[in-house]
Design a protein around this nucleic acid. Sequence first.
DNA 1: CTCGGTTTCGACGGAGTATTGAAACCCCGG
DNA 2: CCGGGGTTTCAATACTCCGTCGAAACCGAG
Lengths: 241, 241
Amino acid sequence: MSTPTEPRRRTGRPRRRGQPVGDPTAEILAAAGRLFGELGIEATTMSRLAAEVGLGQSSLYYYFRSREEVVAALVAEANVVPLALIDRISQTGASTAAKLHRFVQGDVEALCALPFDINEIHRIAGREQERFARYWEERAKLERRLASLLKDGMAAGQLRPVDARLTTLTILANDEGTQNWYRLKPRRAREAAIAVADLTVAGLLAPGHSLEDVRDESFRSSIETVTPRSRSGNKEETARP
Amino acid sequence: MSTPTEPRRRTGRPRRRGQPVGDPTAEILAAAGRLFGELGIEATTMSRLAAEVGLGQSSLYYYFRSREEVVAALVAEANVVPLALIDRISQTGASTAAKLHRFVQGDVEALCALPFDINEIHRIAGREQERFARYWEERAKLERRLASLLKDGMAAGQLRPVDARLTTLTILANDEGTQNWYRLKPRRAREAAIAVADLTVAGLLAPGHSLEDVRDESFRSSIETVTPRSRSGNKEETARP
DNA sequence: CTCGGTTTCGACGGAGTATTGAAACCCCGG
DNA sequence: CCGGGGTTTCAATACTCCGTCGAAACCGAG
């Protein structure tokens, strides 16, 4: 479904169990996303993942060099939703505080919708900066956008003066910490997301500004707030001849 | 399994490498704390831990039934510092907002001083509620104390009205999310802790109350609060044929 | 000296990751 | 029709880690 064109042909030894249905790489990643959410990343074995797509354990290594490469391929998506979110919000004409409120709420909700634990990602990705280079780049980009948003708000006098970078990291850490507790409770995720957004914005508003006004503006301006569920495959040059 | 007051006598087969120095159980836990911090919990193997205390890998199972029991023994400490902190703070005569500020700052600093990743704990402890029962009990107690503190502040009109339980969880999640990023940077931990405390308190203050006043009161009332944890050097030893 | 309790070890089975060489299939040129 | 070459899959294997088991090594009491 990722590539509407069908450029590549496939031949090769048939599978013992289960027939190939589509692009094996995409199927593996989809199954991995499912299993990571159900069992946790560390607890998901290559055997289990292979069985899920109808392959033998060792056959996975034809598509991915290692188990961690599967993780990395999935993890790379973790930042794209927040990045797209802050981009979309930045282009609106809302006040900075309302933008911040919408971002925090959307970020928490997006994190809670992830099939895996974002904190687990950070530990794994921190140990192997090389393999997760793309993740860290996008993470840095996200930090810059958010810091820039905070500076705008301070310049406009709507936010009280704080250290933009430190506050950025704090906000993102708060969002991630919340995901820890509400990832498995989609019902309460929105409620928690709003609570975090309220706390964050109220904590940053300059005197004389009302949280209620910001909330109203945030909710009113988010007529169109989508949470894309698509999980498109990404092409990571993997196979070896 | 050691009665803390009684130093039991010891006999038994001598170790091949390394001599017993003190209580093996305590030594294992100390080494585990060190290794968990250096390598991460999941990445610390029983062989490595055994080598650290001069034992063979299988000998660890004389003191602990499983690897997870080592984790659980260490993890039990994670909540006692915050619990003691909120108890001590509750008994002071400071305003609720100042108490909250002191707690959040102290909690973040205490979490950052832990030798392991608190979020990793939550994942592991969540999977095995049985084995980590004590941990979850103390965690629940901590939540009750903090919620009660929030209710006091709202009743006194110093904090704006919010859902106490939801806000409690949000605050604790924020603290834990921050630990993720500052655990390995003791230098910047205090700075980050204050930033989180500022953001939290400012986000909860009722209109007409000033964060600056609360900060002043918080700093003034905390003569000496934190007990830093020693973090001794490690020795890399990897020579094997 | 022998017996029993305590502590340690070595060997092993089970499970996970990753590598390797070969098998099974298709297509294409002769 | 036949055989080479590319593609995909598998089985076998090496290595690591966890946890168990039986026995070894030491000590003190009888």
